[in-house]
């Protein structure tokens, strides 16, 4: 396609030759943009245009079928004014933060254990990771079986331990704990694998040098291991928060947001608003709010990490 550019020779060098020389001199530039242009064009249509479309719809009252009207920021005000949506948002934050508070330390502890030279650690590692590769929809469908008030295995365990049987569907705390348990169960495996990779990347020489200097076990952990894990912690934290705010399948299939809206989360309500309540305006504006919030949250945590590093 470049041949079309070889038109007229001018001066000592033809345009074509000059072009060739330019390409040679700017080899990196040319190659890079040759590679990236199609990728960026695709990215534009499948990532940027949808985000903008989402934004446009969020200013309308579209119901999916009929012509729509622009309603300005009404949907956004509704999200913040309506107690219902505030509760949905705080539930989501609760699930994301608490599952992080449980899952991250648990992941670190298990990763530290599996980083020892112990027997069968490959097997343990596999077992801890397996939940991560299961299907959310199918596990949720199984949890429904477990939760049955009659002969459900959760109640068999609870009564076996000497407690009173729980009616899981109507007990706010019990249901929230099930959702949290599911999230930690499904998420901790990837935390462990990431931390294991980080731990095994710490050069042995550091520990050896510290031992020569007479540092104890705890000192080595505190002064070498912990600082070497900071980057990974930020990574796990940021991706964990982003993932945690997008919890969907267990809510949609297990609790459907109830009872009393106490387990409803943003993504579930977006899905409900779009496909059940046929209110695309509030659905897309909720999506925009969630996106802005996550962008903000991950920037804050990355900045905090950078400052922590500098300090």
């Amino acid at each position: 396609m470049n041949s079309s550019l070889s038109i007229q020779p001018s001066g000592s060098l033809s345009l074509w030759e000059r072009w060739q020389r330019y390409l040679r001199q700017h080899r990196d530039q040319t190659l890079a943009w040759t590679i990236l242009t199609p990728i960026l064009i695709y990215y534009f249509f499948f990532s940027i245009v949808p985000v903008l479309t989402n934004l446009v719809i969020s200013f309308t009252d579209w119901n999916g079928f009929n012509a729509f009207h622009f309603v300005g920021l009404k949907n956004y005000f509704r999200f913040f004014e309506d107690k219902y949506y505030r509760q949905v948002f705080s539930n989501t934050a609760y699930f994301a933060v608490v599952s992080m508070v449980i899952g991250l330390p648990l992941g670190v502890i298990v990763a530290l254990m599996l980083n020892q030279q112990i027997r069968a650690r490959g097997i343990y590692r596999t077992l801890w990771y397996i939940p991560t590769v299961t299907s959310g929809a199918i596990i949720s469908q199984m949890v429904i079986v477990f939760m049955a008030p009659y002969g459900g295995v959760f109640n068999l365990i609870v009564t076996g331990l000497g407690f009173k049987a729980v009616i899981w569907q109507t007990d706010v705390n019990a249901l929230r704990n099930i959702i949290l348990g599911y999230t930690v169960w499904k998420g901790v495996g990837s935390t462990i694998v990431l931390y294991l990779a980080a731990l095994q990347g710490i050069p042995r020489e550091l520990y050896e040098a510290a031992m020569v200097d007479g540092a104890g076990r705890f000192q080595r952990f505190w002064y070498i291991t912990v600082p070497m894990l900071t980057n990974m912690t930020t990574f796990v934290f940021v991706t964990g928060i982003i993932g945690g705010f997008q919890i969907f399948e267990p809510i949609q299939l297990i609790s459907r947001g109830g009872p009393f809206n106490s387990t409803n989360v943003v993504l579930n309500q977006i899905y409900n608003d779009a496909f059940k309540n046929l209110d695309f305006g509030i659905a897309t504006s909720s999506a925009t709010i969630l996106a802005l919030f996550l962008l903000f949250a991950s920037m804050i945590s990355m900045r905090a990490m950078r400052q922590g590093e500098a300090a």
């Binding site: 190659l31 040759t34 242009t37 249509f45 446009v56 729509f68």
Partner: peptide, 30 residues
């Protein structure tokens, strides 16, 4: 109808993107 116009615009954009991607894919990448 407002909605239709928006969809059409989007659809045309998408189609254009595919055509563009097909045309502008330079030789080395191919």
């Amino acid at each position: 109808m407002n909605r239709n116009r928006l969809f059409n615009l989007l659809a045309v954009l998408v189609m254009a993107s595919l055509i563009l991607t097909a045309c502008s894919t330079p030789t080395p990448v191919e």
